[in-house]
Simulated scan of single mutants.
Amino acid sequence: MRKSFYEYLMTERNPNGYDEISQFANNAFFDTQFPKHENNFEIISKYLEENAGYLPSMTIFDEAWQKYLAYLD
C-alpha cells in the first residue's frame, strides 16, 4: 500500500530541526485536522491553503511533495 503524504512527512520531522520542511513536518504533527490518509496533491494543497497558518509559503509544501514523490519511487 502506498504511504500517505503525511506518513512521509513524519519521516522529515525533527523537533530540533530548523530547515523549512522539518518545521512543516513538526507543525503538521500537531495539526489534528491534517488529512493524514490522503495522497492527492490537490486535496492536501487546498487544505493547507485554507487551514495551515503555520506554513509560511506553499513553496515549502511543493518541495516536500517533490521529495515525497521521489520517496515513492
Rank of each mutant, 00 (worst) to 15 (best):
E20G: 01
N16Y: 15
Y18Q: 10
D31S: 11
Y18E: 10
E7C: 07
N14E: 09
F30N: 09
D19H: 11
E49I: 06
I43K: 13
E12K: 15
P15G: 12
N40S: 12
M10C: 06
A70K: 14
A52R: 01
M10H: 02
R13M: 12
Y71D: 15
D19G: 05
N16Q: 15
I60L: 04
L72S: 00
A25H: 04
Y71P: 05
S22C: 12
I43R: 12
L9E: 03
N27S: 13
L9F: 01
H37G: 10
N16T: 13
K36M: 14
A64Q: 00
T11P: 05
F5R: 00
E42S: 13
Q33V: 02
K46L: 11
N26M: 14
E49C: 06
S45H: 14
P56N: 12
G17Y: 11
R13F: 07
K67T: 01
L48W: 04
A28M: 10
T11D: 08
R2G: 04
Q23M: 15
S22K: 03
M10T: 03
I44T: 02
I43P: 05
I43L: 13
L55H: 09
M1E: 09
W65I: 01
N39Y: 13
E49L: 09
P56L: 08
F24N: 04
D31T: 09
A25P: 01
M10E: 05
E12Y: 01
I21G: 04
D31I: 06
A28G: 06
E63T: 08
E7F: 02
N14A: 09
E63N: 12
N39S: 15
F61Y: 01
D19L: 09
G17E: 10
S57L: 12
I43V: 15
S4A: 05
Y71C: 07
F5M: 06
A25Q: 00
F41M: 03
E49F: 03
T32S: 10
P15D: 11
D73R: 13
E50M: 10
Y54L: 07
M1I: 07
A28N: 04
W65D: 03
T32N: 13
N39E: 14
A64P: 03
D31N: 11
F30T: 11
K46H: 13
F34Q: 01
I43T: 15
S57K: 15
D19S: 07
E38R: 00
D73Q: 12
K46W: 04
G17Q: 11
I60H: 04
D31L: 08
I21Y: 02
Y71I: 07
D62N: 04
F61L: 02
E7I: 04
K3I: 12
P15M: 10
Y6R: 00
N40I: 11
S22W: 05
T32E: 14
K67F: 05
M1F: 07
E63M: 08
Y54K: 05
M58I: 13
Y18F: 09
F61H: 01
S57T: 13
N26K: 06
A70P: 01
N16E: 15
K46D: 14
K67S: 08
M1H: 08
P56V: 12
A52H: 03
L69Q: 15
K3A: 07
